[in-house]
């Protein structure tokens, strides 16, 4: 079936925050990403959906500069890093990620020091950026946890003593403590009870509304994507098979795989 080709943006004058072009990555014989391009505009939420092994998490990790692709480039519209971010060395990447990119992982062990205090986990982010006043560290950690709707009477408990939902809130507080330009969410609610999942999504939604943080959220759960995202990319076997406004992709999916996915889940 022939579809009308979509035009380049005419009305939106803002420059995109994130541009990733023609990114490909293989791990041995496994194709993780094949010619993937993505664009994210300031203040919007891009959802990436697909089954396990579709490459969606790999793509997110590329956005967090945790890995370098075989081909392709990646830019963020930030004054301090004008060029291709994949060309940065490890040190520069670390600086950039610490200051400008926040990430929430599915597994809190990946993002948190489980034995240290929750507020300390948040404070570490600020310490990495050079904050050296104890009172400021304390106040900003408290604020970030509060915004993430973490119960402040438990702010000095270590994450290993907390429930899964609260661990995700600590991760979120850590991710937003420095007010990042980009917030990456890798299956942030997978593995949580349904009721807890709804509360965490609600927090994310509020945060997005109040602060207009640009987000990229990866999930295999269409419900999560529909709740959170403005636009969605559907990935399969390392490729983007469909991309569009969330309501359009879910109500009028074009690709056979997307149709299968939508009909299976709805």
């Amino acid at each position: 079936m022939i579809l009308l080709e979509r035009l380049a943006p005419e009305l939106l004058t803002a420059a995109p925050l994130l541009v990733m072009r023609h990114v490909s990555k293989r791990y041995g014989p496994v194709v993780a990403l094949e010619d993937v391009s993505a664009t994210v505009w300031p203040g919007e939420v891009l959802g990436i959906v697909g089954e396990s092994g579709s490459g969606k998490s790999t793509l997110l990790r590329m956005m967090n500069l945790e890995d370098t692709p075989d081909a392709g480039d990646y830019t963020l519209a930030l004054p301090e890093v004008p060029g291709n971010l994949f060309a940065l060395d490890r040190f520069a990447r670390r600086q950039l990620c610490a200051r400008r990119i926040g990430i929430v992982y599915q597994n809190p062990h990946q993002g948190l020091l489980m034995g240290h205090s929750s507020s300390g986990n948040v404070a570490e982010r600020l310490l990495m950026a050079g904050e050296r006043r104890f009172a400021t560290l304390r106040a900003r950690a408290r604020d970030a946890l509060d915004v993430s709707e973490f119960p402040l009477n438990r702010m000095d408990d270590p994450p290993r003593l907390l429930s899964g939902g609260m661990q995700q809130r600590v991760q979120l507080a850590k991710a937003i403590a420095l007010e990042p330009a980009l917030l990456l969410l890798d299956e942030p609610t997978t593995g949580l009870d349904v009721s807890v999942q709804a509360l965490v999504l609600d927090t994310l939604k509020r945060l997005q509304r109040d602060r207009a943080i640009t987000m990229v959220i990866v999930s295999h759960d269409l419900g999560v994507i529909r709740t959170m995202a403005d636009r969605v990319m559907v990935m399969r076997r390392g490729r983007v098979v469909e991309e569009g406004l969330v309501d359009q992709v879910f109500q009028d999916p074009q690709h056979p795989y997307t149709q299968e996915l939508v009909h299976a889940k709805l």
């Binding site: 020091l113 205090s117 507020s119 404070a123 570490e124 310490l127 990495m128 050296r132 104890f134 000095d156």
Partner: peptide, 15 residues
């Protein structure tokens, strides 16, 4: 990358 050393001091102050 010495953030974690500061983190130890932060937690001593908190505790």
């Amino acid at each position: 990358d010495y953030g974690r050393l500061w983190l130890v001091l932060y937690e001593q102050m908190v505790r």
